[in-house]
C-alpha cells in the first residue's frame, strides 16, 4: 500500500525536481564546448522561481484557451511522469496506461500549445505552431514504430512490463539497437533540440517551440518551461529505462532505490552529455530537411522490426 502511494510521488518528485537540472547541465556543457564558463547548473531553477513570482501580460485577443494551455501542458506531463518507470521497474500506476497513452498525452500538451500559439493572432505564434505540428507529425510514426518494436519483442506496451522484460537482456540485440537509434533521433526532434530546433533562439526564421510560447509570461511561461524540461527528461527516461534498464530496482526496497537512483543519474547524465555534444557539433538543419532526418529514423525503426521478425 505504501508502495502505491510513495513510488508515484517519488517519481514525480524526481522528474519534476531533476528536469531543470538536466537543462542546466546541458547548457553548462555546451557553454564549456564553446569555451565559455556558462551559467550555473541551477540557473533554470532560478529562472522558474523568478517567473513564478512575476505577474503576467496577456494579449487581448487571447481567449481562455491561452490560459488553459500552461496547465494542460504541465498536468499532462505530470501524468506521464506517473506512467514511466523511473527508479523502479514496477510502476504502481501502470494500470492507468501504457506507452501509447504516453505518446498521446504528449500530443495533448502539444495540441493545446499549438492552439494557444494561434490564439494571440501574431504571425510568429502561428508559424511556430505550424512547424511544431509538422515536425511532430513526422516524428510520431518513427517514435511509434521504434516503441512498437520493443513492445512486440517484450509482448507488452506497458512500460513497466517492458522494463522488467528488458532486464533479462544482457546485450542489446541488433533489432533493439536499431530501435534505440531511431528513438534517439526522435527524442531530439520531440524535445526541440538542435539540429531540429534551436531552444536558445528567438529569431523568427529558426524558432519553433519558442515561437509558440512567445506570448506567454509570468507563471504561465514558468509552467510551460518547466513542462518542456520535464518532457526532455521523460523522453530520456523512456530511452534509458526501456533499452538500458540495468540496475533499476524491481521493487520498492530502499537500498535498491538508492542504487537505482545513482545509476539513473549517471545514465541520464550520459545522454544529456551526448545531446550537448550533438548540439555543439551540428548546425540546425533547414526546416524542409527535417523530414529527411526523421525519415531516417523511420527507416531505422522499420528495419528494426523487420530484423526482429526475420531473425526470430
Amino acid at each position: 500500500m505504501i508502495q502505491l502511494i510513495i513510488l508515484p510521488i517519488l517519481q514525480i518528485v524526481v522528474i519534476a525536481g531533476l528536469s531543470p537540472l538536466i537543462k542546466g547541465f546541458i547548457n553548462n556543457i555546451e557553454a564549456r564546448f564553446q569555451c565559455r564558463k556558462g551559467s550555473s547548473l541551477f540557473q533554470p531553477y532560478y529562472n522558474l522561481a523568478k517567473l513564478f513570482r512575476k505577474d503576467a501580460v496577456i494579449s487581448e485577443t487571447a481567449s481562455w484557451i491561452f490560459i488553459a494551455t500552461p496547465y494542460v501542458t504541465f498536468v499532462s506531463i505530470l501524468i506521464i511522469a506517473l506512467l514511466v518507470p523511473v527508479l523502479s521497474s514496477t510502476v504502481p500506476a501502470n494500470f492507468t496506461g501504457d506507452v501509447i497513452l504516453v505518446i498521446y498525452l504528449f500530443a495533448l500538451g502539444r495540441f493545446f500549445l499549438a492552439l494557444s500559439s494561434l490564439d494571440t493572432g501574431s504571425a510568429f505564434g502561428g508559424m511556430g505552431g505550424s512547424r511544431e505540428m509538422t515536425i511532430s507529425s513526422m516524428a510520431e510514426p518513427a517514435m511509434m514504430l521504434s516503441v512498437f518494436n520493443v513492445a512486440i519483442i517484450n509482448g507488452s506496451t506497458n512500460l513497466s512490463n517492458i522494463t522488467q522484460a528488458m532486464l533479462s537482456y544482457k546485450l542489446l540485440s541488433p533489432s533493439l539497437f536499431l530501435s534505440l537509434a531511431a528513438l534517439a533521433i526522435v527524442i531530439i526532434a520531440e524535445a526541440g533540440r538542435i539540429p531540429v530546433d534551436n531552444p536558445f533562439t528567438h529569431l523568427e526564421l529558426t524558432m519553433i517551440h519558442e515561437g509558440m510560447i512567445l506570448e506567454f509570461s509570468g507563471r504561465y511561461l514558468a509552467l510551460i518551461e518547466w513542462a518542456s524540461c520535464m518532457k526532455l527528461l521523460i523522453l530520456l527516461t523512456i530511452l534509458v529505462n526501456t533499452f538500458l534498464p540495468w540496475g533499476i530496482a524491481s521493487g520498492l526496497t530502499f537500498p535498491g532505490l538508492i542504487v537505482s537512483f545513482f545509476l539513473y543519474i549517471v545514465k541520464i547524465g550520459f545522454f544529456a552529455f551526448l545531446i550537448a555534444i550533438v548540439e555543439s557539433s551540428f548546425a540546425k538543419v533547414r526546416l524542409f530537411r527535417i523530414p529527411n532526418l526523421l525519415g531516417t529514423s523511420f527507416v531505422l525503426a522499420v528495419l528494426a522490426i523487420i530484423t526482429h521478425y526475420i531473425v526470430s
Binding site: 484557451i65 499549438a114 511532430s136 507529425s137 510520431e140 518513427a142
Partner: peptide, 25 residues
Amino acid sequence: GATVALTGALVATCFVKAFGISFLA
C-alpha cells in the same frame, strides 16, 4: 501501426488548424 500513428499526428495538425484558424485570433 506507423501509418495510423502518422495519421493520428496529421489529424491533430489538421484539427489544430480547423479550430485555431476559425475560432481563435
